[in-house]
């Protein structure tokens, strides 16, 4: 385990349970090595399907250690909301970045890499590389 600050991970889904479950899955698969902070921001504050800028901003604040935040998203409004928040400039902490990655596989790769002490670029590269993981 590193004493250094680690990159934070935010998982944004249309569904609260999906975001929470993917966070749990990533922590579980990181097998005891999951030391980097990860937070889920799924669904609307009232528990419905959708995307909430408020929940995303809260999750980002929670995992912000000052060395970057990788934001992974599922689709549609999750992608657009994070992009619009980043364009604003002050709704997310400095160093927050939207990472182009498959949601589940990317989350696992990102958390493992961040927990191993990878910087934001390394976390982003690992998450994006998950697109290359073929199943057939």
């Amino acid at each position: 385990m590193s004493e250094e600050k680690q990159v934070g991970i935010v998982l944004v889904s249309h569904s609260g349970p999906v975001a929470e479950a993917v966070a749990e899955l990533a922590k579980g698969l990181a097998a005891g090595g999951a030391t980097a902070p990860v937070a889920a921001a799924g669904g609307t504050p009232s528990g419905g399907l959708g995307t909430s800028a408020e929940l995303i901003a809260e999750a980002a604040r929670k995992v912000d250690g000052g060395v970057g935040i990788a934001v992974l998203v599922d689709l549609g409004s999750a992608v657009l909301t994070v992009k619009a928040m980043l364009a604003e400039g002050d709704e997310l902490p400095d160093g927050a970045r939207l990472v182009d990655a498959p949601f589940v596989e990317g989350a696992v790769a990102a958390l493992v890499t961040a927990s191993a002490g990878g910087d934001l670029a390394a976390v982003e590269a690992a998450a994006t590389e998950a697109y290359g993981y073929r199943k057939l």
């Binding site: 419905g48 995307t51 909430s52 409004s77 909301t81 992009k83 619009a84 604003e88």
Partner: peptide, 17 residues
Amino acid sequence: RQLISTVGGASGPLYGT
């Protein structure tokens, strides 16, 4: 800014932007 934070669907960030 208010549309982005309250709509919850893709139209929020789009109209907000």
